[in-house]
Amino acid sequence: MLYAILAYHASGVVESWTPDEDAAVMADLASVRERLLAEGKLGPAARLGPTEGAFTLRGSGAGMVIDGPFAETKEQLLGFYVVDCATRDEAIEAARSLRSANPTAVYEIRPIPLYLPGVPFPVTESVEN
């Protein structure tokens, strides 16, 4: 079963980290990602940009584009991991490994009933309107 592990963090905390603090957390998370990859369990993963650049499409018809994050909450979605785990407990253990690398984050785990793998996304430096 594939599971999505969604990483949340209190708004403003990650942005307050020094470059060295951010690099240390990312290095710890990289260790977890490398282990999950070596075990053949890691699928796509991404660190999302700040919520200031987020926008939401909602409403009927063609919808309306609204600036800002998709939810009104103190915690914002920072990124996600897709893991292939045989059991729910195995997915929880993968999330616990990520949490050990970034203990102040919150990790939501959701089963993925349908996954259509495709070509990898290209690496981009920045996105402009």
Score class of each variant (00 low, 15 high):
residue 5 I to W: 05
residue 115 Y to E: 05
residue 119 V to H: 08
residue 45 A to W: 11
residue 86 A to R: 12
residue 87 T to K: 03
residue 54 A to L: 04
residue 115 Y to K: 03
residue 107 Y to K: 09
residue 65 V to W: 04
residue 106 V to Y: 10
residue 69 P to V: 05
residue 97 S to G: 15
residue 3 Y to I: 05
residue 74 K to C: 00
residue 20 D to A: 15
residue 21 E to F: 00
residue 90 E to W: 05
residue 2 L to V: 02
residue 26 M to Y: 03
residue 104 T to L: 10
residue 52 E to K: 12
residue 12 G to P: 04
residue 7 A to P: 00
residue 90 E to S: 08
residue 42 L to N: 05
residue 93 E to Y: 05
residue 13 V to W: 08
residue 91 A to L: 05
residue 104 T to E: 08
residue 62 A to K: 12
residue 90 E to I: 03
residue 87 T to L: 02
residue 64 M to V: 14
residue 98 L to P: 01
residue 61 G to T: 07
residue 12 G to R: 13
residue 14 V to D: 13
residue 47 R to L: 11
residue 97 S to F: 02
residue 58 R to T: 13
residue 77 L to E: 08
residue 82 V to S: 00
residue 107 Y to M: 15
residue 108 E to Y: 09
residue 4 A to H: 02
residue 19 P to W: 04
residue 83 V to R: 02
residue 100 S to R: 14
residue 27 A to N: 13
residue 106 V to E: 15
residue 56 T to Q: 06
residue 81 Y to F: 13
residue 78 L to S: 14
residue 88 R to N: 10
residue 63 G to N: 05
residue 125 E to I: 10
residue 29 L to G: 05
residue 113 P to S: 13
residue 73 T to W: 00
residue 18 T to N: 00
residue 128 E to D: 06
residue 52 E to V: 10
residue 95 A to T: 06
residue 66 I to Q: 13
residue 14 V to W: 14
residue 85 C to G: 00
residue 27 A to C: 07
residue 103 P to V: 09
residue 28 D to K: 15
residue 127 V to H: 10
residue 16 S to L: 02
residue 8 Y to N: 14
residue 64 M to G: 04
residue 21 E to S: 06
residue 3 Y to V: 01
residue 81 Y to S: 01
residue 63 G to H: 10
residue 89 D to P: 01
residue 7 A to I: 14
residue 86 A to F: 01
residue 49 G to K: 12
residue 2 L to I: 07
residue 4 A to C: 12
residue 82 V to T: 11
